[in-house]
């Protein structure tokens, strides 16, 4: 504060009530607004404006290469329902989400439970499980493309050695195996993150709970089912919601490993939007798809927050 600032006389109190008080506080704290201005400006330009403009685009036939961009009303949205590739992309995205999210969480929880024991080299184990998570997705996708190779891939070799399959499988070229392959790769890449969050959650559970249960004669498995998992519920909800939102947008793995193939079996919404917007430059239609995705995520999140929170409150 500058030394020349006048001391506020005692009788000059902040005005009572409503707008005048708000204005007074705004004037008094004006530097607060200055310090968030850059952040708010970026937010307005790259979030608020883009969301609004995307909405506008979705009602227009907007191709970046054509100067004429007529208003078409709900045509883009109507087109969605008749677009087989879009409907299949939704199906593929849901397929991916339904398997990848719970399995990644289960893997993360399993590893966290293992590492929550007093074992040697815990730090080393934790690092090993976390490394796939920091590996750039481009690199992960390249590695797994090799792992899945039909003739000389690692996975086929070890599955044959274990006697699980007889002939090499063409993982990424087989329409029925391509999506499972992408899912396995995503579990590998994501479990480390879930593990760290679950470990933090596990360490927050008071030891007393377990001692009490031991006195009551609960065995290890019962302690897991009746204490650990319910008490981890807030962590699980957080992980579930963020993972589902993330998996609705899956792109890089698809781009590098399968390019949406074979036969469109791995074309997800994220990938299809990219194709429409930046290969065909059909931006109005792509914006409508973006909004459809947004609507799905929105409904899902609201549903989860209402349903899960209430269900497991204790």
């Amino acid at each position: 504060m500058a030394a020349t600032a006048q001391p506020v006389p005692a009788y000059q109190r902040p005005p009572e009530g409503g707008i005048r008080r708000t204005l007074y506080l705004m004037r008094k704290e004006w530097t607060a607004y200055v310090s968030i201005t850059p952040v708010v400006l970026l937010f307005i330009v790259f979030t608020v404006f883009t969301v609004a403009f995307s909405f506008y685009l979705s009602f227009h036939k907007w191709n970046i290469l054509e100067p004429d961009r007529p208003f078409v009303g709900l045509e883009n949205y109507a087109r969605l329902f008749g677009d087989e590739r879009f409907i299949r992309a939704i199906g593929n995205t849901i397929y991916f989400t339904v398997f990848a999210v719970p399995l990644t969480m289960a893997a993360g929880l399993l590893v966290a439970l293992l590492l929550n024991n007093k074992i040697r080299l815990r730090g080393l184990y934790r690092t090993l499980f976390y490394i796939p998570n920091i590996t750039p997705l481009v690199v992960s996708a390249i590695i797994w493309k090799w792992v899945y190779q039909g003739d000389y891939g690692l996975l086929n070799y070890y599955l044959i050695q274990l006697g699980l399959i007889e002939r090499p499988l063409l993982w990424l070229a087989d329409p029925n195996l391509a999506m499972p392959a992408v899912i396995i790769m995503s579990i590998w890449g994501g479990a480390g993150y879930q593990m760290v969050i679950y470990l933090a959650g596990l360490q927050a559970i008071p030891e007393d709970f377990y001692d009490a249960a031991k006195v009551d004669g609960a065995n290890g498995f019962q302690r897991l089912i009746y204490i650990t998992i319910p008490l981890l519920n807030p962590t699980s909800i957080f992980l579930f919601i963020t993972s589902v939102i993330g998996s609705f947008q899956i792109f890089t793995q698809i781009y590098i490993m399968t390019s949406g193939g074979p036969l469109g079996r791995t074309s997800t919404i994220g990938y299809y939007i990219y194709e429409k917007a930046f290969r065909h430059f059909d931006m109005g239609y792509a914006a409508a798809m973006g909004y459809a995705l947004f609507a799905m995520i929105f409904v899902f999140t609201i549903f989860q927050l209402r349903f899960l929170r209430r269900e497991f409150e204790y």
Partner: peptide
């Protein structure tokens, strides 16, 4: 908000 919504604008 999914990134795909902001992307094009």
């Amino acid at each position: 908000i999914p990134g795909q919504v902001n992307l094009i604008p």
